[in-house]
Design a protein around this nucleic acid. Structure first.
Lengths: 113, 113
DNA sequence: GCGCTATTTCCAAAATAATGGAAATAGCTT
DNA sequence: AAGCTATTTCCATTATTTTGGAAATAGCGC
């Protein structure tokens, strides 16, 4: 993880449509959601949805797997975890007093570049 | 905190220059950094830096306070904490299995809309 | 292979973001 | 108030993002 990747992932999530897509997928849990189901919930033209999904997939935040003629989308939790880890570490890097105790507990110890 | 605010904050951080600015301010700690010092470190024209700073300030991620003729910038930790809290909650909302144990410990219990 | 459903890719238009020089503003100091 | 330093705002340009209709592709069942 580094500034370039982190900023691109943040940018991918930094759009209301995409953040909603991502949240919807997280809430769908392990089962995931087909693009079509997502499209119903998001009420958005297919091509627009597809562009947004591509962005999330390119940044590793979403994964698709084919089931017959549909594509099932899954939130890629590990990517979010790495991103959160990066932010927590960046945020608390030197002072250690920027987050309340509960969050400080999870500060990572590895060095971040 | 809601999707609109969260996505705008994520977008603000989702640019390599701004994420670097933010990180630099975090690392500067409580003392903060004057815009001019930040400009030296970032090696960027003043107007460009000022545009980026404005964006971070507008989203509540950075605060400025005047000290004579310079403006000292500070990372606004509480905003980052709220954003991280939102992401952790969104990410673990229904399944609770998307993050490793260390991070799961800090899941918030309040409802998120 | 044909028809069908699901989804992406192609293409273009409109909107927004990024960049930076030059001029304006803010606050010192004399 | 003049001169100085620090920073923002104005303005314009270029680059990127967002959006979506229409055409293309993928997989299935007959």
């Amino acid at each position: 993880m580094n500034i370039e990747i982190a900023s691109r992932q943040l940018e991918a999530l930094g759009n209301p449509s995409r953040l909603t897509i991502y949240r919807t997928l997280v809430r769908a849990g392990r089962a995931g959601l087909a693009v079509g189901q997502l499209q119903e919930r998001m009420d958005m033209p297919g091509s627009t949805l597809s562009h947004h999904l591509k962005r999330l997939i390119d940044m590793g935040l979403v994964r698709q797997e084919r089931a017959g003629t549909s594509l099932i989308c899954h939130a890629e939790y590990s990517a979010m975890d790495a991103l959160l880890g990066f932010l927590v570490n960046e945020c608390c890097a030197d002072e250690g007093n920027c987050l309340p105790p509960a969050v400080k507990m999870v500060r990572r110890t590895e060095t971040v570049t």
